[in-house]
């Protein structure tokens, strides 16, 4: 009988809806005009449709960002849902753009959409990858920097998912500490 198995036709729903953003550093335009939503998605199939048809992060021009955030949260610390939070930051060296960047970004996205942070998944806002000549950066943004245990567990799960060796330390920066300061002077709230 040619009755279709529903499993093969129904898209697999995600716990959350997500928006993928693109930022291109066009100095001739206002910063906010350079930041746009590519699309939103709330199923596994739509995620793959999007991911398979967008340029890999490693091939973006310098100065560009990709961000994937829960629908309703803008990829900026000023957003009410980001303000009290912070980000786990992974700094890549120049050679890691070709060796690690795309894998790190995909593994991070799979953790996001699959709710891979267990009971702490509600504390996740989104993730951003910044393509920069001086070294690319990947950030996982959380909702509340004061939730220390939850934030540390999120950091450990991120390292585990990206196969970051335990001896490599990553740092968590609270947005309230970084707002308006040059990147290098910022002190990590904690590390794992």
């Amino acid at each position: 009988d040619d009755v279709l198995d529903p499993e093969s036709v129904i898209k697999h729903p995600l716990q959350n809806s997500w928006a993928m953003w693109f930022f291109k550093n066009d100095k001739g335009r206002d910063w906010k005009d350079n930041l746009r939503v590519i699309t939103t998605f709330d199923t596994v199939e739509d995620f793959w449709g999007l991911y398979n048809h967008t340029l890999p992060a490693s091939r973006l021009q310098s100065g560009c960002d990709y961000s994937v955030f829960k629908a309703g949260i803008q990829p900026m610390w000023e957003d009410a849902q980001n303000k009290k939070g912070g980000r786990w930051l992974i700094n890549l060296n120049k050679s890691q753009r070709q060796t690690h960047l795309d894998d790190f970004w995909l593994e991070t996205l799979l953790c996001l959409i699959g709710e891979g942070f267990d009971e702490h998944s509600d504390d996740i806002c989104g993730a951003t990858v910044n393509i920069r000549t001086k070294g690319d950066k990947l950030g996982l943004w959380t909702r509340d920097a004061n939730k220390i245990e939850a934030t540390k567990k999120i950091g450990l799960k991120l390292k585990e998912s990206l196969n970051v060796p335990s001896k490599i330390v990553i740092g968590f920066q609270a947005h309230s500490d970084t707002a308006g300061k040059a990147g290098s002077t910022v002190k990590n709230r904690f590390t794992v």
Partner: peptide, 18 residues
């Protein structure tokens, strides 16, 4: 309530489904 969770292997498996 219940949470819809997909582990990495399930998501990769669904990457290639039609």
């Amino acid at each position: 309530g219940t949470r819809i969770v997909y582990d990495r292997s399930r998501l990769m498996q669904l990457r290639n489904s039609p």
